[in-house]
Nucleic acid binder design. Structure first.
Lengths: 117, 117
DNA sequence: CATTGTGCCTCGCAAAATGAGGTCAGTCAA
DNA sequence: TTGACTGACCTCATTTTGCGAGGCACAATG
């Protein structure tokens, strides 16, 4: 699903805390490597949200440290290497919880901002 | 509108960036003073989200510095003072923009997380 | 008279994203 | 073969924000 490019750039501050959720959701679709994640997000958001490396890699490593995801290197035909990240069972569970949290958060804000126009 | 109390506490990080939106939305309903804002939020969220003073006042002051809101002291009958905050025209405009941004943000995340269960 | 509630505030800390930087390995054209 | 470009990984300092804890002052309640 591709989100239409918004006229207003999305405030970076809003993104805070949603990154692990995004990452786990993406990895739910299958293992991906860093660069690929960035590109995927960029494309699906119509170019608005470019996940920054400085945000991605630390987040990925943290997720790995808590064993929500694993990583492994894979060599391509041309000899170059990529580091793939894959979701783990614990990550699945965490994702489920995070999703619930996300929905509650949205409900909460919506209660003040008013329902969507 | 009152949001049912969530089982999972909402991650603080998610809140980041949404505070000005909340504040402006609330002040749209009329002038309020700090303590009242905290109480209102607490009640409307069923007690889950207690806006912290350490988050509220700095945010309020920042909003005032940018002239999105104004403040004025009002003396009650019992002689005590309250500082009321009121939204300004510039704040109204900003709020409109922020709301749009919020909706886009939600759409974006939803595009990855998948539609609500 | 002491405790609780109202009501304002500030400060130091921690978490997270940003922006900028760095490295190395292939590709491709001049 | 040199140089530019892209793919691909990463780190670091700075900024922003919320949190927790604290402080102050006064009123109402027991």
């Amino acid at each position: 699903m591709i989100v239409p490019k918004p006229e207003v750039p999305v405030d970076r501050e809003l993104l805070k805390g949603s990154t692990p959720l995004l990452l786990l959701s993406l990895l739910c679709e299958g293992p991906m490597y860093g660069y690929q994640i960035i590109e995927t997000v960029r494309q699906r958001t119509g170019g608005t949200y470019t996940l920054k490396e400085g945000a991605l890699y630390p987040a990925l490593h943290k997720l790995e440290a808590t064993e929500f995801i694993t990583s492994y290197w894979e060599t391509q035909e041309n000899g170059r290497e990529r580091r793939y990240y894959a979701i783990q069972p614990a990550g699945q569970a965490f994702l489920t919880a995070k999703k619930k949290e996300w929905n509650q958060f949205v409900d909460m804000v919506q209660a003040f901002v008013g329902p969507r126009a």
